[in-house]
């Protein structure tokens, strides 16, 4: 399932290294448009609801963190 996540991420921002990068937010690789696009896709794909309180750097800094959030919300 993690592959599905990476696929989504790469579709939204093709030029980022999602597999290894751990500072997607801190280094400004994802801007707010990208973040919300990711949220939108994750909600549709995994049938979860992401609230504003989940939109914090810790949850978006790496693909791993994102995946952890998805699992938690499922």
């Amino acid at each position: 399932m993690m592959e599905k996540l990476l696929e989504i991420l790469e579709d939204i921002q093709p030029d980022a290294d999602f597999e290894n990068c751990e500072t997607l937010i801190d280094d400004g690789i994802l801007d707010s448009f990208a973040i919300l696009s990711i949220v939108s896709e994750l909600q549709d794909e995994f049938g979860i609801t992401i609230t504003p309180s989940e939109v914090i750097p810790e949850n978006f800094n790496s693909a791993k963190a994102l995946w952890a959030m998805v699992q938690r919300l499922q």
Binding site: L36, I50, P52, V55
Partner: peptide
Amino acid sequence: KDYVFYPVSL
């Protein structure tokens, strides 16, 4: 961003 943009978008 934190108090209008994200809440409205989500």
